[in-house]
């Protein structure tokens, strides 16, 4: 069986900053996969490359077995994406936006109506159906974005920090929805900072640090890799692995780092 998402040696830099350094990752069908990492680890960059909002410098990304550099459009039909900072057309109503999302994905009129009504009810947006998006709270906007991503019932749902700004009831609905989708053979790929949620929700996770995959697997695998003990929580495992990665990075590049630091003051190290 091929993974639904596969990243092989992916590199990406912005303005001289190396965001991803040969990242390798595999996400399997029918699982909830969590991408974890400290701030600036490259989580959002990874997701944006997969959904086609950013182009990698080099490497290979396959979605559903398709090389996205070779075929950059068609594979998107099976994905639904919700970004971290959701930007929506403020000038449209909730209903108009969902119609727009459905139309550009080529859904039929009946399908759009049916799915739109379902998600409006599920996310408790009935009273806001004809409200302009500009009038919605952050949590409601997030719900609208999730509804839009699910409208075409994608095989792969990719969400960047999906729980931020959503109230506890909304979070519960989302978690239930993810579990239901996975039971139906679909895949959910999330990035999150909420380690306790990730521990309870995800089948497998990958911990990335400075653009590299430090470790991936289920909690048991990670406990073994990190040698944190079999009762260690995901948080403990995460802290141990990222600390080790930081130390290793410092050992690998000490002269370069010190040189860079000293050069700020106009002199170089010995």
């Amino acid at each position: 069986m091929t993974p639904i998402v596969e990243l092989v040696n992916v590199w990406k830099s912005y303005d001289g900053v190396q965001a991803l350094k040969g990242l390798n990752l595999e996400v399997w069908r029918g699982e909830i996969f969590g991408l974890l990492g400290p701030n600036g680890a490259g989580k959002t960059t990874t997701l944006k490359i997969i959904v086609g909002l950013l182009r990698m410098d080099r490497g290979l990304v396959r979605v559903n077995g398709v090389d996205i550099s070779e075929e950059p459009y068609e594979y998107k039909r099976i994905i639904g994406y919700v970004p971290e900072s959701v930007s929506l057309p403020d000038y449209l109503t909730v209903e108009e936006f969902l119609i727009y999302s459905g139309k550009i994905r080529g859904l039929s009129e009946g399908k759009i109506r049916e799915r739109m009504n379902y998600f409006i009810k599920l996310f408790d947006l009935e009273g806001k159906r004809r409200s302009l998006i500009i009038s919605l709270s952050r949590g409601m906007r997030q719900k609208v974005a999730v509804a839009s991503a699910l409208l075409h019932d994608p095989d792969l749902l990719i969400l960047d920090e999906p729980f931020i700004g959503i109230d506890p009831a909304g979070q519960h609905v989302l978690k239930e929805l993810f579990n239901e989708r996975v039971k139906g053979g679909k895949t959910v790929f999330i990035s999150t900072h909420m380690l306790d949620t990730a521990e309870r929700l995800c089948d497998r996770v990958a911990i990335i640090h400075k653009g590299q995959n430090v470790a991936s697997g289920d909690l048991k695998n990670l406990q073994q890799i990190s040698r944190a003990g079999e009762n260690a929580t995901l948080e403990e495992v995460f802290l141990k692995l990222t600390e080790e990665a930081r130390e290793q990075l410092f050992e690998e590049e000490p002269i370069k780092r010190r040189g860079g630091f000293l050069s700020l003051f106009g002199r170089r190290g010995p």
Binding site: V51, G52, L53, Y73, E74, Y75, K76, R77, I79, Y81, P83, S87, L88, P89, D90, Y91, Y100, S101, I104, R105, G106, S148
Partner: peptide, 16 residues
């Protein structure tokens, strides 16, 4: 100003 940041919607949808 109003729509550039919303381009993520069509860009990730597979639309031409």
């Amino acid at each position: 100003l109003s729509d550039l940041e919303n381009l993520w919607v069509p860009l990730t949808s597979g639309v031409d």
